[in-house]
Design a protein around this nucleic acid. Structure first.
Lengths: 218, 218
DNA sequence: TTATAAAATTAGGTTTGCCTAATTTTATAA
DNA sequence: TTATAAAATTAGGCAAACCTAATTTTATAA
């Protein structure tokens, strides 16, 4: 079994490996993702390599092994199921559930994820629009197109959010944007790629390019 | 905030302080309860004393301070609420829930216990018959009379179990004893205080005195 | 009372997972 | 190509929470 910390590294590496940009997963990228010092990451890379959960090549960076990938997906599965539980059953807000699920995802017990999944009615997506891996590790493809990739004049459905920080989610809450909300791109500012959008046909609002990149559409 | 380990010590001390025998809570008693070495307990006694969660007197043993008691009760509260969740919602067996709740009880987040309690419909007792502390720390008195204290010829309702180990609970499952089961004491063996009992008016069964001490009656 | 056993404590050590500071390696740009 | 910046690594350290072995204190029983 893996420790909490090992699990957090696996999850971070998995997340990085899912990024559309397909960049190499470097020591410093992992350090940044976890808020740790790169020196600590070097320690853990050694440990996870010994456990054969990752492979490391200074040139190519870190890659999950088959087992590492399996382990990571099970953590992601638990995280997303618990998020559904917290939102739907305990009525937490969108921006609160991530942090609690960060702790709950590490609870290990035979069948726990499967029973939780059944209890929740086999949800396909978590409250942030991310697909929930099945018990066998299979998962639907994540949404990858962002609002920033949309065309001026186009109208798009919010399918998921890339950033799940409470800052971003609180901002969305303020703008009344949820999964399913329809967003129309009215204009793109050439200078900094800011977007002028209409939310559910409401009045024009300006958002940054960073904002647009973190809204995934379908 | 307290660490997982500190919480486990507080909980163990609380449990010992609830024992009807009212014995002094010694270093070795705590060590035994947690399966740790007495030397480790000495370390932690120092730490919890510094944090003003316990008071220690070599003669009188360990005592929880007001704050220590508060903290301990909140952990017990979470433990028992999660047990209800695991049994009622996830359909785990009686003998499985304790171990999972041991992990879940340490999850900290504003309101978590309160929301869980509400979701579960404000249960009064956990599946082992132990009272669930309320948000304000108040809790019903635990059942304290055991079957071993019963009279020959008397008939008693199983109100709770003292031992929550899966070994004991599996044994109860085999004997078809649950909370609410009626047990009649047919005879007590003078030699070793074994009990001959009838379960829900079924045929005579012999159980040890240790068994009798771990069944609490009302 | 004194010998013995039990309990408590101290001293010193281990592992995990972090850290800082210094150094080495690799990449980038003048 | 060479200077500089960035990234990676090494060396050494720290706190938490355990441990064993040795010692001291306390309790119990002959």
């Amino acid at each position: 079994m893996n420790t909490f910390s090992e699990e957090n590294y696996l999850k971070a590496i998995f997340r990085l490996s899912q990024m559309p940009d397909n960049k190499k997963i470097s020591t410093s990228a992992i350090a940044e993702a976890l808020g740790n010092n790169p020196a600590s990451v070097v320690d853990m890379i050694r440990k996870l390599t010994d456990k054969q959960l990752i492979e490391y090549d200074k040139k190519k960076g870190v890659k999950l092994t088959t087992q590492g990938q399996k382990d990571a997906i099970q953590i992601v599965r638990k995280h997303r199921l618990w998020e559904v539980f917290l939102l739907e059953k305990l009525e937490y807000r969108w921006d609160e559930i991530h942090d609690i699920a960060e702790e709950l995802e590490h609870i290990k017990y035979h069948d726990l994820a499967d029973r939780l999944e059944k209890f929740l009615g086999f949800p396909e997506y978590d409250p942030h629009g991310d697909p929930i891996p099945k018990a066998n590790g299979k998962m639907a493809k994540s949404f990858s197109a962002s609002l920033a990739d949309g065309k001026v004049g186009g109208s798009y459905r919010v399918a998921a959010v890339r950033d799940t920080s409470s800052e971003f989610l609180k901002y969305l809450h303020k703008l009344e944007i949820n999964i399913g909300t329809q967003i129309k791109i009215i204009e793109q500012i050439a200078f900094d790629h800011s977007l002028i959008i209409s939310i559910d046909n409401g009045e024009a609002t300006t958002v940054s390019s960073k904002f647009g990149e973190n809204i995934l559409i379908s």
